[in-house]
């Protein structure tokens, strides 16, 4: 028997990078950053290695959710231009491989986070993975236009897990960080849905743009942005806030409100005429908005030991 006869040749064999892409690295970077801020903002010293492990396993848990989401959504990912090149629709990774990787990493991340920090944090991570995969991906995403609103909670949990990993308990502050991401998610995704015009239509995903129309989506973006601004500015006077946070938040919320106002004012022909310039700008601004808010929370936390962070 020759070597060739016992080797199954698959021309599309996946490389390491393809499996890594299953973990949605860009989403993972957001998870890492917000979880880090949650951990650092906690009023408890954490050993650097334990802190590193906590963030790593939260990130791996987030990655596992991404792999399971890609396994479940492979059929609609094949239809949408934005997701067509993902490892499963492009044929580089088999669905079964993504499922195995997702389940394996989910189990590993939960157990390791629990061992490295505490079982409360591990349980919270397990719940987050369950929420993203089962509640959001399998249930809400294809059944209700509120998919992004409720599903956004999954992306909002990492700072709470970071805080719990550090303290082993709960407080108001991590839930303010949770609320910040929770309220930020809908305008962020609805702006994307406005300029990724036909993607969600074609895939039959009941995004607000599909079920209630584009005018209603513009109104929703403005309403959520106003509520988000109130929440973000209010958080400045809580335990995670301070003068730095207040300045950053004031500037960013003014810009964000202005962007949402312009989106609300626009008509469809006007938006199409400049190829959704405002919507795309608002989407990019939303990324900076969240990054700077959490950056400011981190800055307040890091300055606290010198008596500079917070309101003193």
């Amino acid at each position: 028997m020759s070597d060739v006869s016992i080797t199954s040749i698959r021309e599309d064999d996946a490389g390491f990078g393809d499996y890594f892409a299953l973990l949605k690295p860009r989403v993972m970077s957001l998870v890492v950053f917000t979880a880090l801020v949650g951990l650092m903002a906690a009023p408890v010293p954490v050993h650097p290695l334990i802190g590193f492990c906590a963030i790593l396993f939260i990130a791996i848990g987030g990655g596992a959710s991404g792999a399971l989401n890609m396994w479940w959504d492979a059929d609609i990912d094949r239809i949408m231009t934005r997701t067509r090149k993902r490892p499963i629709p492009s044929g580089r990774v088999q669905p079964g491989e993504a499922l195995s990787l997702g389940l394996g990493l989910a189990g590993l991340s939960v157990v390791m986070l629990a061992l490295a920090t505490n079982w409360f944090a591990g349980a919270f991570l397990a719940f987050t993975i369950f929420f993203y995969v089962v509640i959001y991906s399998m249930w809400l995403k294809r059944s209700t236009p509120q998919n992004i609103v409720i599903g956004g909670a999954a992306g909002a949990f990492p700072p709470v897990i970071g805080w719990v990993a550090a303290t082993g308990g709960m407080a108001v502050e991590p839930w303010l960080m949770f609320a910040l991401i929770f309220m930020w998610t809908p305008p962020h995704f609805w702006a994307l849905a406005l300029f990724m015009r036909s993607d969600y239509d074609d895939a039959g995903v009941p995004m607000l743009t599909v079920t209630h129309g584009r005018r209603a989506t513009r109104v929703h973006i403005l309403v959520y942005t106003v509520l988000l601004a109130a929440l973000a500015l209010g958080a400045a006077f809580s335990g995670i806030g301070g003068p730095i946070y207040l300045c950053v938040s004031a500037v960013m919320n003014l810009l964000f409100l202005h962007g949402a106002w312009r989106i609300w004012q626009r008509s469809e022909p006007g938006a199409e005429a400049d190829n959704f310039h405002c919507e795309k700008r608002f989407f990019r601004l939303s990324l900076l908005y969240l990054f700077l808010h959490f950056g400011a929370i981190l800055a307040e936390a890091l300055l606290r030991p010198w008596g500079l962070g917070g309101w003193g």
Binding site: I9, R10, E11, D13, A14, G15, F16, G17, Y19, F20, H47, L49, I50, C53, L56, L115, A116
Partner: peptide, 29 residues
């Protein structure tokens, strides 16, 4: 195909080695 498989094996090997080092460090701490 061989290049991709080597890359994959190397990636898995390095990830496992890093995991062992991490668990060891965690145990010490």
């Amino acid at each position: 195909l061989h290049r991709r498989r080597f890359g994959r094996n190397l990636g898995v090997g390095l990830a496992l080695a890093a995991f062992i080092v991490l668990v060891f460090g965690l145990t010490i701490v």
